[in-house]
Design a protein around this nucleic acid. Sequence first.
DNA 1: CGCGAAGTTGACATCCGTCAACATGCGTGG
DNA 2: CCACGCATGTTGACGGATGTCAACTTCGCG
Lengths: 240, 240
Amino acid sequence: MQPAIATPAIAKEFRSRLLTTSLRFKAGQVIFDEGQKATRWYEVVRGTVRTCRFHIDGRRHLTGFYFSGDVFGADYGYYSTAAEAVTDVTVQCYRVGDISQPGQPKPDLSEAVSILFRAMSSAQKYLFIVGHRTALEKLAAFLLCIHNQNNDDPHLLLPMSRADIADFLGLTIHTVSRTFTELAQRGLIKIEGRHSVVITDKTGLCRLAGEMDNFTNPSADGPIHPAAEFCFPKHPNPET
Amino acid sequence: MQPAIATPAIAKEFRSRLLTTSLRFKAGQVIFDEGQKATRWYEVVRGTVRTCRFHIDGRRHLTGFYFSGDVFGADYGYYSTAAEAVTDVTVQCYRVGDISQPGQPKPDLSEAVSILFRAMSSAQKYLFIVGHRTALEKLAAFLLCIHNQNNDDPHLLLPMSRADIADFLGLTIHTVSRTFTELAQRGLIKIEGRHSVVITDKTGLCRLAGEMDNFTNPSADGPIHPAAEFCFPKHPNPET
DNA sequence: CGCGAAGTTGACATCCGTCAACATGCGTGG
DNA sequence: CCACGCATGTTGACGGATGTCAACTTCGCG
């Protein structure tokens, strides 16, 4: 798992330069719908938000959870997912028009770029979680992700339902439930109610999730271009 | 599946305002490593790139494929994945410093924002694919994604290996292989070699993938805030 | 022609989805 | 405060899908 994404200083500094609106939604309310024109993006101030799509057969598929400080709705053109409030939430709403309309006076876009970088990191993180093979691995990675977002507090609050977790991890609520109890039986977590879990063996969870524990590669600190630079193709490859 | 992400006009227009370097890598070469400082981001000019992470047990996990026009490496802080050339590739390399160093003269960041939006859309798309439950659904969604990126040409070039596809979808090469033949037996695709597939029944593939065929929601064209706006919490919820 | 890498296919075991039953928690109303 | 009902969550049995292991085939390259 990559380190928790702290709000970059630059974003705080320039926050006032983008026009924002503060909004509140009650638990379960829709913030925007799939297919709507993506005219705004959002930052969670308080509470939890989920993004989801629906298959034609009615099955739901969640593509992300967003907590305080996270960004969602940064889509190009049309929203590819809907966004719903998991709990009562307060969000800050940024207008896309502020950056894409050539005529308008432009605010400092450093903040926008910074926000989008954070959103990218979040999406990458989720891709890694969902890509795991077994239910144990997926749930372990999921819990570690929440853990990191909560400043490594072993007491986790899981505001979402089992169904939400299942639809996010590509499992059923039954498997999610069974896997929770198995993690508890293995002594990795302690379940303290529907929305509360304590991590009792973080190393064990990391091993299950297959993650290097807080590993970064400080030696390779970004040389100009690690490998060869201008190398000409020797044998043809199938490519576009 | 969301519509293919066309390169926005604004990006083309302002392309020259960001400093870029054009680089080439041979098939298999590493472009950047997981854990390196994320000092650059990249756009594929020609060829195919994959991003990947490794579990502690050595298993590989791909988080994305990037084709001509796609953006990768837009990470905050450190690269959360490595990037490797699937085929011989030409990439354009953007320096992060160009937008985050306050002292420097700032280029027009509209392009950067536009690029990041596209990268976000791509990540969302991949999340949707990997989140499917069965191997058939995953592979169907994957093929449709490639299909859309190729301007809906039914002839698909799959430059990556079966192992790449497996590590991306969270399956094994055996299951991927079996699923390919099953899709062919069902008459949905025609396999024309290791790196070439023809889609013979797009509707059937869409049904498998659970996607609304090119569905957008033009009626709901983004009202200010679909649901209630300022609503105060009635009952306490577990949240951060 | 021969070798190794990549891909395919089959047999079998395991994991997870399905179905069903039950337990728990929560809100409402008595 | 308790009774009730519904939504949510848990657990078990079973079958099907997928990982594992193994054998074979195909392809590309020397």
